[in-house]
Write a protein that binds this DNA or RNA. Structure first.
Length: 425
RNA sequence: GUGGGUAUAGUUCAAUGGUGGAACGCCGGUCUGUGGCACCGGAUGGUGUGGGUUCGAGUCCCACUACCCACCCCA
C-alpha cells in the first residue's frame, strides 16, 4: 500500500471542519485589522533562506528539503531550490521584488499555507505543517518601526484567540535587542558562561560555544540557578531598544493584553530584532509553542532590499487545532436536510427538489429510491441531518412533502413553495 | 540525528509456543411509506516487512520499516 510519507498526513472530515473554522476566523479577525492576504510560492531559491533565516540556524543547516533543479536547455541554469521552511523570508522577498515600499504605505499582509522542515515527527511536529502568519512591513516613514505595530499584532492575536474560543494560553514577551546591542550582550554572555560552563549539562556546554543565547532556553532543573545568575539581555539593551520595548509594554497594558516578560525567551531564527514573543499552550506536550514571532528590522537589507523594518508572527495551525481539539471545540455544522426518494421513479423528483433547496442556499444530501425508508432514515441519522424530507409518489402528486424533525420526531407536510423557508428557519 | 515504546479486522483491543477472537462499526433480515432500541444472520484480517530458532511462531531472536512519545529544535 502506498502511504503518506513520513511526517505528512491527510486531514480528513470531520477534522477539516475545525481547520476551516480556524481559517475563517483568521480571515475575519485579520480583515478587521486591515490585513490582506498574500500567497507566495511553496518553493524558493535556497539562497533566500540561507541569507534570510540564517546559515547557522538549525532550520537552514539541517532541516530543509533542498534539491538541485537541473537545467533542461542550454538557456537554463541549474539552481538550488528549497521547499519553504517558513514564510517570512518569502513575504519579504515579494515585498522587495514588487517594490511594495514605493506605495509609501505600511504593508499588512497575512498568509495561510504549508511549510516544510525535515525534522523527526512527534506530537505537534510534522514535516509538512501549516502556518498562519502575518507581517507588517514598510518604509520607516510609514511608521513600520513603531512600538504600536508590535502591540497591534499582539492585540490582534489575542482577538483571534477569543474568536476561536481558545483558553489556557500564555503570551511571553522579550526584547532581543538590535545589531548594535545584541553582540555586546552575546559577548558578555560568553564571558559569563566561560566561568560556569563546567557545571552545566552537556547540551548547554555545547550551546555555550555554538549559540550562547540558547543556553537561556535550557530546561534541565539543575542548571536553572546558574542560568538565572547569568547577565540579562535587558541590562544590555541600548537606549533605543529599551524605550521601544517599554513602549510596547505600555501599550499592551493600556489595551489590557495580558503578557509575561520572559528575559530568557530566545528565538531560533537569526533575523529577529527587538521584540520577540511566543504564545504557549499547556495541551501541546513538548511542542508547547503554539505561535511565535517578533520584529525583523534588518531582514530586508539582509536579502538585498531597501530598509524596511517589520514585525510578524507565525501560528502553528496544526498546534492551534490540537489545542482546540483538546478543549473539545466542535466546528462541524449539521446537515440541514436529507432528501429521501421513496419508490421507483422518485429519484428524479428528489434530485429536482434538492436542486431547488440548494439554489435557495440550503445544504442537502439525497438518498436513493432503492433504499427502504428505514435505511434512508438510518443514513439521515448517521449524516447528522436535522430534517428528513420524504419524496414518495403521494408527495410528488400533492407537490407537498413530509418533513420530519429527526431529533423531536415531529412530522408535518409542507408545500414545495414553503419548504426552503421552513428548512432555513 | 539520539533514546524509549508500539505494530493483530475499518476502529479499539484480546489470544500459557499448539487450528487467530471480542466489542464497536459495516451489510442484510425480523420491519415492502417512518430512524435511534432489540433480536437473528453475514462479510472482513492470516498478525508491518524480511530472515532465524522450533515438530510447530502474533507469541522467542535478529534486521529493516512505519507510527507514537521524548531529546534536540521550532510553529
Amino acid at each position: 500500500m502506498i502511504k503518506a510519507v513520513r511526517g505528512t498526513r491527510d486531514l480528513l472530515p470531520p477534522d477539516t471542519a475545525l481547520w476551516n473554522f480556524v481559517e475563517r476566523k483568521v480571515r475575519e479577525v485579520f480583515a478587521r485589522y486591515n490585513y490582506q492576504e498574500i500567497r507566495t510560492p511553496v518553493f524558493e531559491s535556497t539562497e533566500l533562506f540561507s541569507r534570510g533565516v540564517g546559515e547557522e540556524t538549525d532550520i537552514v543547516s539541517k532541516e530543509m528539503f533542498t534539491w538541485e533543479d537541473k537545467a533542461r536547455a542550454a538557456s537554463e541554469k541549474t539552481q538550488s531550490l528549497t521547499l519553504r521552511p517558513e514564510n517570512t523570508a518569502g513575504v519579504v522577498r515579494a515585498y522587495i521584488e514588487h517594490e511594495l515600499g514605493r506605495s509609501g504605505l505600511l504593508q499588512k499582509l497575512y498568509y495561510i499555507g504549508p511549510q516544510f522542515r525535515r525534522e523527526r515527527p512527534q506530537k505537534g511536529r510534522y514535516r509538512q505543517f501549516f502556518q498562519i502568519g502575518a507581517e507588517v512591513i514598510g518604509p520607516q516613514t510609514a511608521g513600520s518601526e513603531l512600538p504600536m505595530r508590535d502591540a497591534e499584532a499582539l492585540d490582534m492575536l489575542t482577538s483571534l484567540m477569543d474568536a476561536v474560543g481558545l483558553k489556557g494560553w500564555t503570551l511571553y514577551l522579550n526584547s532581543v535587542g538590535c545589531q548594535e546591542c545584541r553582540p555586546r550582550y552575546n559577548q558578555a554572555l560568553r564571558e559569563a558562561l566561560a566561568g560556569v560552563k563546567d557545571k552545566l549539562c552537556s547540551d548547554c556546554q555545547r550551546r555555550a560555544e555554538t549559540n550562547p543565547l540558547r543556553v537561556l532556553d535550557c530546561k534541565v532543573p539543575e542548571d536553572q540557578d546558574i542560568i538565572n545568575a547569568l547577565p540579562k539581555i535587558a541590562e544590555y539593551l541600548d537606549e533605543g531598544c529599551r524605550t521601544h520595548f517599554a513602549e510596547v509594554c505600555a501599550i499592551l497594558d493600556t489595551l489590557g493584553v495580558p503578557y509575561q516578560v520572559n528575559p530568557r525567551m530566545v528565538r531560533g531564527l537569526d533575523y529577529y530584532t527587538r521584540t520577540t514573543f511566543e504564545f504557549t499552550h499547556g495541551e501541546l506536550g513538548a511542542q508547547s509553542a503554539m505561535l511565535g514571532g517578533g520584529r525583523y528590522d534588518g531582514l530586508s537589507e539582509q536579502i538585498g532590499g531597501p530598509k524596511a523594518p517589520g514585525i510578524g508572527f507565525a501560528i502553528g495551525e496544526d498546534r492551534l487545532v490540537l489545542a482546540l481539539q483538546a478543549q473539545q471545540t466542535e466546528a462541524a455544522e449539521p446537515l440541514p436536510a436529507f432528501v429521501m426518494p421513496l419508490g421507483k421513479g422518485t429519484n428524479r423528483h428528489a434530485m429536482k427538489l434538492a436542486r431547488e433547496l440548494r439554489s435557495a442556499g440550503i445544504a442537502v444530501d439525497v438518498s436513493d429510491e432503492s433504499f427502504r425508508l428505514k435505511k434512508s432514515f438510518e443514513t439521515a441519522e448517521k449524516l447528522g441531518a436535522k430534517y428528513a424530507v420524504i419524496v414518495g409518489e403521494n408527495e410528488v402528486a400533492a407537490d407537498a412533502f413530509n418533513v420530519k424533525d429527526l431529533k423531536s420526531g415531529e412530522q408535518k407536510t409542507i408545500a414545495r413553495a414553503e419548504l426552503a423557508a421552513f428548512l432555513a428557519g
